[in-house]
Design a protein around this nucleic acid. Sequence first.
DNA 1: TCTATATATAACATACACGTTATATAAGGA
DNA 2: TCCTTATATAACGTGTATGTTATATATAGA
Lengths: 112, 112
Amino acid sequence: MPNLDVAFSALADPTRRAILARLALGEATVMEIAEPFDMTQPAVSRHLKVLEGAGLIVRRVEGTKRPCRLAPAAITEVDQWLDMLRQALAKNYDRLDDVLAGMKPKKRKVRR
Amino acid sequence: MPNLDVAFSALADPTRRAILARLALGEATVMEIAEPFDMTQPAVSRHLKVLEGAGLIVRRVEGTKRPCRLAPAAITEVDQWLDMLRQALAKNYDRLDDVLAGMKPKKRKVRR
DNA sequence: TCTATATATAACATACACGTTATATAAGGA
DNA sequence: TCCTTATATAACGTGTATGTTATATATAGA
Protein backbone atom coordinates (compact mmCIF):
# COMPACT_ATOMS: atom_id res chain seq x y z
CA MET A 1 0.00 0.00 0.00
CA PRO A 2 2.02 2.91 -1.22
CA ASN A 3 -0.87 5.17 -0.21
CA LEU A 4 -0.13 4.52 3.41
CA ASP A 5 3.55 5.21 2.87
CA VAL A 6 2.68 8.59 1.48
CA ALA A 7 0.04 9.37 4.08
CA PHE A 8 2.17 8.45 7.07
CA SER A 9 5.24 10.22 5.67
CA ALA A 10 3.15 13.31 5.16
CA LEU A 11 1.98 13.12 8.76
CA ALA A 12 5.53 12.59 10.02
CA ASP A 13 6.55 16.19 9.44
CA PRO A 14 5.71 18.66 12.23
CA THR A 15 5.20 21.53 9.83
CA ARG A 16 2.67 19.52 7.89
CA ARG A 17 0.85 18.45 11.02
CA ALA A 18 0.71 22.10 12.06
CA ILE A 19 -0.75 22.96 8.68
CA LEU A 20 -3.38 20.27 9.12
CA ALA A 21 -4.15 21.60 12.59
CA ARG A 22 -4.59 25.03 11.05
CA LEU A 23 -6.90 23.62 8.39
CA ALA A 24 -8.91 21.84 11.06
CA LEU A 25 -10.08 25.33 11.99
CA GLY A 26 -11.24 25.93 8.44
CA GLU A 27 -10.17 26.62 4.89
CA ALA A 28 -7.11 28.81 4.30
CA THR A 29 -5.06 30.14 1.40
CA VAL A 30 -1.38 29.40 0.93
CA MET A 31 -0.35 32.79 2.29
CA GLU A 32 -2.59 32.43 5.31
CA ILE A 33 -1.14 29.02 5.98
CA ALA A 34 2.43 30.21 5.49
CA GLU A 35 2.14 33.25 7.71
CA PRO A 36 2.80 31.74 11.16
CA PHE A 37 5.75 29.68 9.95
CA ASP A 38 9.35 30.73 10.02
CA MET A 39 9.85 29.41 6.55
CA THR A 40 9.69 30.66 2.98
CA GLN A 41 6.58 30.47 0.85
CA PRO A 42 8.05 27.91 -1.56
CA ALA A 43 8.75 25.60 1.35
CA VAL A 44 5.13 25.84 2.45
CA SER A 45 3.93 25.31 -1.10
CA ARG A 46 5.87 22.09 -1.23
CA HIS A 47 4.43 20.91 2.05
CA LEU A 48 0.98 21.56 0.67
CA LYS A 49 1.82 19.59 -2.43
CA VAL A 50 2.86 16.68 -0.25
CA LEU A 51 -0.34 16.91 1.78
CA GLU A 52 -2.40 17.03 -1.37
CA GLY A 53 -0.51 14.11 -2.88
CA ALA A 54 -1.21 12.16 0.28
CA GLY A 55 -4.92 12.86 0.03
CA LEU A 56 -4.90 14.79 3.29
CA ILE A 57 -6.04 18.07 1.75
CA VAL A 58 -7.80 19.33 -1.37
CA ARG A 59 -7.47 22.71 -3.06
CA ARG A 60 -9.90 24.94 -4.87
CA VAL A 61 -9.01 27.56 -7.42
CA GLU A 62 -10.40 30.95 -6.53
CA GLY A 63 -8.95 33.64 -8.74
CA THR A 64 -5.29 33.81 -7.92
CA LYS A 65 -5.76 32.03 -4.61
CA ARG A 66 -5.82 28.32 -3.82
CA PRO A 67 -7.79 27.78 -0.65
CA CYS A 68 -6.99 24.46 1.02
CA ARG A 69 -9.21 22.20 3.13
CA LEU A 70 -8.89 18.93 4.90
CA ALA A 71 -9.86 15.88 2.88
CA PRO A 72 -11.17 12.64 4.34
CA ALA A 73 -9.54 10.17 1.94
CA ALA A 74 -6.16 9.59 3.54
CA ILE A 75 -7.35 9.80 7.11
CA THR A 76 -9.90 7.11 6.46
CA GLU A 77 -7.26 4.84 5.03
CA VAL A 78 -4.86 5.48 7.87
CA ASP A 79 -7.60 4.81 10.37
CA GLN A 80 -8.48 1.53 8.75
CA TRP A 81 -4.92 0.38 8.92
CA LEU A 82 -4.52 1.46 12.52
CA ASP A 83 -7.61 -0.54 13.42
CA MET A 84 -5.62 -3.69 13.00
CA LEU A 85 -3.16 -2.55 15.63
CA ARG A 86 -5.90 -1.31 17.92
CA GLN A 87 -7.66 -4.63 17.81
CA ALA A 88 -4.50 -6.61 18.38
CA LEU A 89 -3.61 -4.39 21.30
CA ALA A 90 -7.05 -4.66 22.80
CA LYS A 91 -6.87 -8.42 22.58
CA ASN A 92 -3.50 -8.68 24.24
CA TYR A 93 -4.12 -5.90 26.65
CA ASP A 94 -3.94 -7.68 29.99
CA ARG A 95 -0.87 -9.73 29.29
CA LEU A 96 0.83 -6.84 27.53
CA ASP A 97 0.16 -4.67 30.50
CA ASP A 98 1.91 -7.16 32.75
CA VAL A 99 4.89 -7.30 30.47
CA LEU A 100 5.17 -3.54 30.38
CA ALA A 101 5.07 -3.42 34.14
CA GLY A 102 8.01 -5.79 34.07
CA MET A 103 6.57 -8.73 35.92
CA LYS A 104 5.69 -12.32 35.36
CA PRO A 105 2.35 -12.75 33.55
CA LYS A 106 0.30 -14.75 36.06
CA LYS A 107 -0.19 -14.65 39.78
CA ARG A 108 1.05 -11.20 40.71
CA LYS A 109 -1.30 -8.59 42.00
CA VAL A 110 1.02 -6.34 43.98
CA ARG A 111 2.81 -3.72 41.93
CA ARG A 112 6.49 -4.10 42.81
CA MET B 1 5.61 16.83 19.69
CA PRO B 2 8.67 15.04 18.52
CA ASN B 3 7.01 11.79 19.65
CA LEU B 4 4.55 12.08 16.83
CA ASP B 5 7.34 12.73 14.36
CA VAL B 6 8.97 9.52 15.40
CA ALA B 7 5.76 7.51 15.52
CA PHE B 8 4.51 8.61 12.12
CA SER B 9 7.92 8.19 10.51
CA ALA B 10 8.09 4.70 11.92
CA LEU B 11 4.68 3.95 10.45
CA ALA B 12 5.65 5.43 7.09
CA ASP B 13 7.87 2.49 6.16
CA PRO B 14 6.13 -0.50 4.54
CA THR B 15 8.54 -3.00 6.04
CA ARG B 16 7.84 -1.66 9.51
CA ARG B 17 4.09 -1.74 8.94
CA ALA B 18 4.44 -5.34 7.80
CA ILE B 19 6.37 -6.10 10.98
CA LEU B 20 3.62 -4.54 13.05
CA ALA B 21 1.04 -6.56 11.13
CA ARG B 22 3.02 -9.67 11.93
CA LEU B 23 3.17 -8.72 15.60
CA ALA B 24 -0.56 -8.13 15.61
CA LEU B 25 -0.80 -11.92 15.32
CA GLY B 26 1.35 -12.31 18.41
CA GLU B 27 4.81 -12.06 19.84
CA ALA B 28 7.76 -13.02 17.62
CA THR B 29 11.56 -13.14 17.79
CA VAL B 30 13.83 -11.17 15.49
CA MET B 31 14.52 -14.18 13.30
CA GLU B 32 10.86 -15.04 13.04
CA ILE B 33 10.10 -11.48 12.07
CA ALA B 34 12.94 -11.34 9.57
CA GLU B 35 12.14 -14.61 7.84
CA PRO B 36 9.48 -13.48 5.33
CA PHE B 37 11.43 -10.40 4.28
CA ASP B 38 13.86 -10.21 1.41
CA MET B 39 16.29 -8.30 3.54
CA THR B 40 19.23 -8.99 5.80
CA GLN B 41 18.90 -9.52 9.53
CA PRO B 42 20.72 -6.30 10.43
CA ALA B 43 18.24 -4.34 8.38
CA VAL B 44 15.35 -5.92 10.27
CA SER B 45 17.10 -5.28 13.57
CA ARG B 46 17.29 -1.63 12.73
CA HIS B 47 13.64 -1.49 11.83
CA LEU B 48 12.84 -3.04 15.18
CA LYS B 49 14.97 -0.46 16.89
CA VAL B 50 13.03 2.27 15.14
CA LEU B 51 9.72 0.71 16.14
CA GLU B 52 10.87 0.39 19.72
CA GLY B 53 12.14 3.96 19.75
CA ALA B 54 8.76 5.08 18.51
CA GLY B 55 6.99 3.22 21.30
CA LEU B 56 5.24 0.94 18.85
CA ILE B 57 6.77 -2.25 20.19
CA VAL B 58 8.46 -3.56 23.33
CA ARG B 59 11.02 -6.33 23.67
CA ARG B 60 11.65 -8.96 26.30
CA VAL B 61 14.91 -10.75 26.91
CA GLU B 62 14.53 -14.49 26.81
CA GLY B 63 17.88 -16.22 26.74
CA THR B 64 19.51 -15.25 23.50
CA LYS B 65 16.19 -14.25 21.95
CA ARG B 66 14.37 -10.94 22.06
CA PRO B 67 10.68 -11.54 21.51
CA CYS B 68 8.82 -8.44 20.36
CA ARG B 69 5.24 -7.38 20.99
CA LEU B 70 3.05 -4.48 20.07
CA ALA B 71 2.97 -1.66 22.59
CA PRO B 72 0.06 0.71 23.11
CA ALA B 73 1.97 3.93 23.85
CA ALA B 74 2.59 5.35 20.40
CA ILE B 75 -0.68 4.20 18.91
CA THR B 76 -2.59 5.97 21.64
CA GLU B 77 -0.74 9.17 20.99
CA VAL B 78 -1.20 8.93 17.24
CA ASP B 79 -4.88 8.26 17.74
CA GLN B 80 -5.28 11.27 19.94
CA TRP B 81 -3.70 13.50 17.39
CA LEU B 82 -5.77 12.08 14.56
CA ASP B 83 -8.90 12.77 16.56
CA MET B 84 -8.48 16.44 15.84
CA LEU B 85 -8.60 15.76 12.11
CA ARG B 86 -11.50 13.35 12.44
CA GLN B 87 -13.55 15.89 14.33
CA ALA B 88 -12.76 18.70 11.92
CA LEU B 89 -13.66 16.47 9.00
CA ALA B 90 -16.89 15.36 10.60
CA LYS B 91 -17.84 18.97 11.19
CA ASN B 92 -17.14 20.09 7.65
CA TYR B 93 -18.43 16.95 6.09
CA ASP B 94 -21.40 18.26 4.15
CA ARG B 95 -19.75 21.30 2.72
CA LEU B 96 -16.57 19.37 2.02
CA ASP B 97 -18.56 16.79 0.19
CA ASP B 98 -19.99 19.48 -2.03
CA VAL B 99 -16.59 20.91 -2.72
CA LEU B 100 -15.21 17.52 -3.62
CA ALA B 101 -18.08 16.96 -5.97
CA GLY B 102 -17.08 20.23 -7.61
CA MET B 103 -20.17 22.31 -7.00
CA LYS B 104 -21.18 25.50 -5.25
CA PRO B 105 -21.61 25.18 -1.45
CA LYS B 106 -25.14 26.45 -0.81
CA LYS B 107 -28.50 25.83 -2.33
CA ARG B 108 -28.00 22.37 -3.71
CA LYS B 109 -29.89 19.50 -2.27
CA VAL B 110 -29.81 17.06 -5.12
CA ARG B 111 -26.63 15.01 -5.07
CA ARG B 112 -26.03 15.10 -8.79
C1' DT C 1 36.37 -23.66 27.33
C1' DC C 2 34.92 -23.94 22.47
C1' DT C 3 31.30 -23.54 19.12
C1' DA C 4 26.87 -22.33 17.41
C1' DT C 5 22.92 -19.42 17.49
C1' DA C 6 20.52 -14.95 18.11
C1' DT C 7 20.96 -10.34 17.82
C1' DA C 8 23.35 -5.79 17.63
C1' DT C 9 26.60 -2.46 15.81
C1' DA C 10 29.90 -0.23 12.53
C1' DA C 11 31.12 1.51 8.22
C1' DC C 12 29.65 2.53 3.94
C1' DA C 13 26.75 3.83 -0.58
C1' DT C 14 22.76 5.69 -2.37
C1' DA C 15 18.66 8.05 -2.38
C1' DC C 16 15.44 11.16 -0.91
C1' DA C 17 13.41 14.91 2.24
C1' DC C 18 13.51 19.67 3.56
C1' DG C 19 15.05 24.01 3.41
C1' DT C 20 17.07 27.91 0.66
C1' DT C 21 17.23 31.54 -3.33
C1' DA C 22 15.98 32.74 -7.87
C1' DT C 23 12.62 32.66 -11.25
C1' DA C 24 8.25 31.40 -13.67
C1' DT C 25 3.25 31.58 -14.17
C1' DA C 26 -1.25 33.43 -13.81
C1' DA C 27 -5.00 36.33 -12.38
C1' DG C 28 -6.49 41.24 -10.97
C1' DG C 29 -6.46 45.93 -11.20
C1' DA C 30 -4.72 50.62 -12.90
C1' DT D 1 -0.58 46.74 -21.48
C1' DC D 2 1.97 47.00 -17.14
C1' DC D 3 2.47 46.14 -12.36
C1' DT D 4 1.25 43.63 -8.30
C1' DT D 5 -0.22 39.75 -5.77
C1' DA D 6 -0.59 34.71 -5.14
C1' DT D 7 1.39 30.58 -5.98
C1' DA D 8 4.43 27.16 -8.33
C1' DT D 9 8.78 25.38 -10.03
C1' DA D 10 13.87 24.87 -10.63
C1' DA D 11 18.33 24.26 -8.95
C1' DC D 12 20.99 23.49 -5.23
C1' DG D 13 23.07 22.07 -0.39
C1' DT D 14 22.77 19.28 3.46
C1' DG D 15 21.17 15.88 6.39
C1' DT D 16 19.14 11.55 7.34
C1' DA D 17 16.99 6.99 6.21
C1' DT D 18 17.51 2.49 4.22
C1' DG D 19 19.89 -1.04 2.60
C1' DT D 20 24.43 -3.61 2.27
C1' DT D 21 28.63 -6.41 4.25
C1' DA D 22 31.66 -7.30 7.98
C1' DT D 23 32.12 -7.84 12.68
C1' DA D 24 30.96 -7.70 17.67
C1' DT D 25 28.40 -9.43 21.68
C1' DA D 26 25.99 -12.63 24.43
C1' DT D 27 23.74 -16.84 25.73
C1' DA D 28 23.29 -21.94 25.18
C1' DG D 29 25.10 -26.22 24.86
C1' DA D 30 28.80 -29.76 24.24
